[in-house]
Design a protein around this nucleic acid. Structure first.
Length: 297
DNA sequence: TTACTCGGTGGCCTTCGCGA
DNA sequence: TCGCGAAGGCCACCGAGTAA
C-alpha cells in the first residue's frame, strides 16, 4: 500500500469494525515502513523510541514516538496473529497465562494502534486535530473489540445519574463512558480508554468519586492508556517527553479515591519503581488475564 | 436541519527546579 | 546567576450526540 492509501483507510472509521481490520492495517503499515520511509530517527533522550519520517508523499512529516521495544516487525506480527486470536478466545484458561503470551498481548495491541496513529501523523498540519480525534476513537473501539472477543459484555454510552436536591430530582448528571462492563444488564465496572493520561487524569478520579457518591454504589472504575509520551524538541533533536503527572496521580489516589485498575501498554519506568505508582499501575495483560474477571464476578 | 454541549487529542508555551 | 530539561497547563479544533 502507498502512504496515501494507508491515510485514506485510517481516516475512515468505517474501515475498523473488526479485530481483523486492525491487524490487516498494521500488516500493511509494517510492510510500508520496511522500505518506504525517508528516515528513522532515534530519540535523543530515551533511545528505545523512534520517530519515522515520511517522504514527500507524507510532506516529510515526523511521527509520534514509537517504542521499539514494543513495536513488532511485520514478521513478528504475522506470526503472532493466530496465537493472539487464540488466546483471546481462551483467555481464562490457565495455560494461556505465560510470559510470552503476556508480552504478545501488550506488543500486538500496541503495534496495531500505533500503526494507525503513525499513519495519521502523515496528515497535513491543518488536519492534525482530525487525526487526534480519529486515533482516540479507534483506540476506544479496538479495546472494546478485544474485551468483547474475550467474552465480556462491553459497550460505550451515556449514563444519566439523577441528582436530588431536598429529595427532588433537580437535574441529570450525564456521564459519557468509554467502557461499560455489564453482566445481565447490571453495570459491573466502568472504564476510560485514552491514548494518554495528559490533562485528563484528574477527571477519571473525580468521575469515580462523584459517580459512586451520586449513585450510592461502589462501582469499580479503571483506566486503560496506550502510553504517556509525546514528541518534543526540534528538527534534528527529537526526544520524548512524559505526559504523566505522578504528583497528581498519587494525590488523587491517596486523598480522594484509588482507581480499581490503571493499565498501560507502554508503561513508564517510574510506574514500575516509584512507591504508590507501582502498586496501582500495571501493564494491560494484567487487565485481560486477571483483573477484568474480578470486576464481573 | 441547526445549534449547542461535551469529550477527544497532542503541540506549544510558561513555570519550576536543579546543577554548573 | 544562568541554562537546560522537566513539569504542568493552555489551546484549537474535531466529531458525536442531543435538544430544539
Amino acid at each position: 500500500m502507498t502512504l496515501r492509501q494507508l491515510v485514506n483507510k485510517a481516516t475512515n472509521k468505517d474501515n475498523f469494525t473488526s479485530l481483523s481490520d486492525y491487524t490487516n492495517f498494521a500488516k500493511h503499515y509494517l510492510d510500508f515502513i520496511k522500505t518506504k520511509l525517508q528516515a528513522v530517527i532515534v530519540s535523543r533522550n530515551e533511545n528505545n523510541y523512534r520517530f519515522f519520517q515520511y517522504k514527500k508523499d507524507g510532506t516529510y512529516n515526523v511521527t509520534r514516538p514509537i517504542n521499539s521495544d514494543l513495536m513488532l516487525s511485520l514478521e513478528e506480527l504475522t506470526v503472532g496473529i493466530d496465537p493472539f486470536f487464540e488466546l483471546l478466545d481462551n483467555v481464562r484458561d490457565d495455560a494461556i497465562d505465560t510470559k510470552e503470551n503476556r508480552v504478545l498481548i501488550n506488543n500486538f495491541i500496541y503495534t496495531c494502534q500505533q500503526s494507525i496513529g503513525a499513519v495519521l501523523d502523515a496528515l497535513p498540519a491543518k488536519r492534525v486535530n482530525t487525526a487526534r480525534k480519529i486515533n482516540g476513537d479507534l483506540f476506544e473501539r479496538f479495546i472494546r473489540l478485544i474485551i468483547s472477543k474475550a467474552g465480556v459484555d462491553v459497550s460505550d454510552g451515556n449514563i444519566a445519574v439523577p441528582v436530588k436536591i431536598n429529595g427532588e430530582i433537580a437535574f441529570n448528571f450525564n456521564y459519557q463512558h468509554d467502557l461499560i462492563i455489564k453482566v445481565d444488564d447490571e453495570t459491573k465496572a466502568i472504564g476510560s480508554v485514552k491514548t494518554s493520561s495528559k490533562d485528563r487524569l484528574d477527571k477519571i478520579f473525580i468521575d469515580k468519586f462523584l459517580f459512586n457518591r451520586l449513585t450510592d454504589t461502589d462501582t469499580p472504575h479503571f483506566a486503560i492508556f496506550l502510553n504517556d509520551v509525546q514528541r518534543k524538541g526540534k528538527e534534528g533533536k527529537y526526544g520524548v517527553g512524559a505526559t504523566f503527572l505522578p504528583g497528581h496521580f498519587k494525590g488523587y489516589t491517596i486523598k480522594l479515591n484509588s482507581l480499581d485498575g490503571v493499565y498501560y501498554f507502554d508503561i513508564r519506568p517510574n510506574m514500575k519503581t516509584e512507591a504508590i505508582l507501582k502498586d496501582h499501575i500495571k501493564t494491560f495483560d494484567h487487565f485481560l488475564l486477571s483483573d477484568i474477571w474480578k470486576f464481573i464476578e
